[in-house]
């Protein structure tokens, strides 16, 4: 690890003052990935900007429309321990409570997990299922994009030079909907997803008909895979439909062979996890209804 400069600004304006000066700059929204990568020589930088001192980036709140606005550097543990969040967004809690162990979760953030752009990241399939968007800011303004448009490839995201991710926005969930995120790991904790699935379903007011379904898969492609499940809308939430969702998921998966899993194994897991996550999502939707 080569020496680098470190700053911990208090405001976004201060952050902008450190950008666009030709320095190789990295942001730290927790440091649980970036510090390890620097130490192992997988990244290099001249300047590391710590975002943890910026109030706006480390807080979270539901706004008047019920959207949960999460600062990009807010620690995961604070989010998933929040009683309101646990009640309103259990699908988010599924993912946020899986990223690392308790010490890691006290530092790590959704923003960091997203910007790291690992295909196996736990936050992204869940956030996509929840219909979340991202607010990206720079000295010249803000823009908002859906989470699924943020990833360009392994380790590559849609941030332009001079931009940073400032907010994750999770809209109020549709009525009668439920979301579930599941990943497969060989151990029971402290591991990285071999494959994962986030599923949201919305049921009709008085029947088990699916009004809408969203499915996103992790670790089965260079970026999160969003499964086209328009064909499932209007069908009954029964085992045949769930099986069909699993089949669609396996079809979309384009995984790689590596030490963590094989192509065939990951396709199989995409199917199995989609089925199990969908069953869980339907159960949650029914509880709410």
């Amino acid at each position: 690890m080569e020496a680098f400069d470190y700053v911990a600004p208090r405001t976004l304006d201060e952050v902008y003052g450190h950008l666009n000066n030709g320095k190789r700059t990295l942001f730290m929204a927790g440091g649980t990935d970036v510090i390890v990568q620097l130490r192992e020589g997988r990244r290099e930088c001249d300047l590391l900007i710590d975002l943890k001192r910026i109030e706006q980036l480390t807080s979270y709140a539901f706004d008047s429309e019920g959207t949960l606005v999460i600062g990009a550097a807010a620690p995961l543990a604070r989010i998933y321990e929040d009683v309101d969040v646990r009640r309103r967004l259990p699908g988010l809690v599924d993912a946020a409570s899986l990223i690392g162990g308790i010490q890691i979760q006290s530092r790590a953030s959704l923003g960091g997990n997203l910007c790291n752009a690992s295909p196996a990241a736990d936050s992204s399939p869940a956030l996509i299922a929840l219909g979340a968007t991202l607010v990206i800011a720079s000295v010249s303004g803000r823009r908002e994009i859906p989470v699924e448009e943020f990833f360009l490839g392994p380790g590559r995201n849609a941030l332009e030079p001079g931009e940073l991710l400032v907010e994750v926005r999770i809209p109020a969930q549709p009525p009668r909907s439920g979301t579930r995120y599941l990943r497969f790991i060989p151990r029971n904790e402290m591991d990285i997803a071999v494959a994962s699935a986030g599923v949201r379903v919305q049921l009709a007011p008085d029947s088990d008909t699916l009004e809408s379904v969203r499915i996103a898969l992790g670790a089965v492609g260079p970026t999160v895979k969003v499964v086209d499940v328009t064909s499932l809308a209007g069908r009954t939430a029964d085992s045949a439909t769930i099986e069909e969702a699993g089949r669609l998921a396996a079809e979309v998966a384009t995984p790689i062979d590596d030490m963590r899993g094989s192509i065939i194994q990951r396709r199989k897991l995409a199917r199995v996890l989609t089925i199990r996550a969908m069953e869980g999502a339907i159960e949650r939707a029914k509880e709410i209804r």
């Binding site: 060989p186 151990r187 029971n188 904790e189 402290m190 591991d191 990285i192 030490m259 963590r260």
Partner: peptide, 28 residues
């Protein structure tokens, strides 16, 4: 169940960390 030295074809070990060399944790 899970531990093994994982090599590429050139004999380079690929999983030289406790993330990918999977010893059981208390939860396992």
């Amino acid at each position: 169940l899970n531990e093994e030295y994982f090599y590429d074809d050139n004999g380079r070990m690929l999983n030289s960390s406790f993330l990918d060399y999977r010893m059981p944790t208390t939860l396992d």
